[in-house]
Design a binder for these strands. Structure first.
Lengths: 244, 244
DNA sequence: GTAATAGTGTCTATGAGACAATATCCG
DNA sequence: CGGATATTGTCTCATAGACACTATTAC
């Protein structure tokens, strides 16, 4: 079927990162402005080629995360998102991108003094609903990443990755509300989270609020899977809001 | 940071397939015996290199599926599973594999007269519990694929992909029982499936059984997401069986 | 005290699971 | 009719969601 002279084609491999965080109670994504062709000047996901043929893919992803956002590798959730290799997606040739999803707690402030000084947070809904063109097929990758994050909030403890090492349940609730764009009842949310094995563990401390009773602080629990799962109501926040 | 002479490294890309089906009421996987080095003689997932630099990845996956199993592309569920690119996983150099998960209905009989005449179905539990060494990191890919299938039965209509174009609910139940290794109550299963929007639609016909009342036939419904989801009890079938 | 937010209790509707009962085929 | 399997009905328990209520801070 294949003659002896045939050789497998060589491919260029990139990693791209969908880096999400919660900022101003909104889901936001880190985007960089491209300084080189192709798509010079356009917004793009952080990412780049493997350094060399020996570099593991996950290492490249962590490296890009650090370079482009100045974020320390250990404080992050990082997972494989998908592969985007449609011929023609990159004018430089056959470039296959391994996309990753990263979730980070809210950070001091973006990215001054790093390699990519042009990296900034953008509200996800703004990017997705506006006419802003992202480079390559990054719009699609972003959409997939956000959908992955939404889905994983249901059945995993991913939400805690949006929070710092210690957080109140109200803060955790804000993660769900921002990512899903819904409003939740704080009282039911409280009982639900507490009643789910391994989701969060109290660390004994409390945090003073500007006003009102201080809230207990929690740390991420040992569990990774929520059992039972959080239920994502199909109804949107806009609908719920207008009904009130 | 990067000097002008730097060039991104070239990579070799393969696709590998975890092809699952239901045979003899057991979850089975299609494996081939490798005819060439490396790992000559070992069992491996069907797969291979991209044909050329222009071939889309999904096309390559469908091509391998057809070549190695003789299966027509349209009757299948095929989805991206993951990327396996650890340096050293392939002695031929830096080879990155894009793994896919394929689900097929039970087939006439495997693969006589095709390219890979050495492809056969193997029970998944046998492969996973035995000392059989699969080539490369295919054991890991298989594990991930099975876990993906198990998870997706919960919240998607993937189970129908194991069935033919028309099936009884008892057959659909067997899919869950085999993949999850549990026993389900046919009566509760019946109501559950019927009550879940878009899962199955009756096609009006019935199938005669060897004995007993004929069963209504159903086709896959328009829905892809189960709402509410099927619940996978943590308890194993062995435990349940001994309790009876 | 009031205001504000954290956390608890209680009721109701819905769905899962156990399992009795009925329906429809074969012989 | 009896035997087997499909399909329906009913009951009980667990959990989601609505929402009244109590607790603890700042002022």
């Amino acid at each position: 079927m294949t003659d002896d002279s045939w050789q497998p084609p060589a491919i260029l491999l990139t990693v791209d990162l969908v880096i999400l965080t919660l900022k101003d109670s909104r889901l936001q994504i880190l985007l960089v402005e491209r300084g080189t062709e192709p798509f010079r000047g356009a917004l793009a996901l952080p990412g780049g080629f493997l350094h060399d043929a020996q570099e593991p893919i996950e290492t490249a992803a962590k490296r890009e995360l650090l370079e482009e956002s100045g974020l320390d590798a250990e404080t992050f959730h990082l997972e494989h998102l998908g592969v985007y290799g449609t011929p023609g997606r990159d004018p430089r040739g056959r470039v296959v991108s391994v996309a990753h999803l990263a979730i980070t707690p809210r950070l001091p402030e973006p990215t001054a003094g790093t390699d990519a000084a042009d990296a900034y947070w953008h509200p996800v809904d703004t990017i997705l609903s506006s006419d802003v063109e992202l480079a390559f097929d990054h719009h699609r990758i972003l959409t997939d990443g956000v959908e992955r994050a939404r889905a994983k909030l249901e059945y995993s403890t991913l939400a805690t990755a949006f929070c710092g090492p210690s957080f109140t349940l109200a803060e955790l609730q804000q993660v769900y509300e921002a990512v899903w764009d819904v409003r939740l009842d704080p009282r039911n949310f409280y009982r639900k989270v507490q009643g789910t094995d391994g989701f969060v563990v109290p660390d004994g401390l409390t945090r003073k609020m500007e006003t009102g009773r201080p809230a207990r602080l929690f740390r991420p629990g040992p569990g990774k899977i929520l059992h039972p799962a959080m239920i994502r109501t199909v109804e949107s926040a806009a609908t719920q809001g207008s009904t009130r």
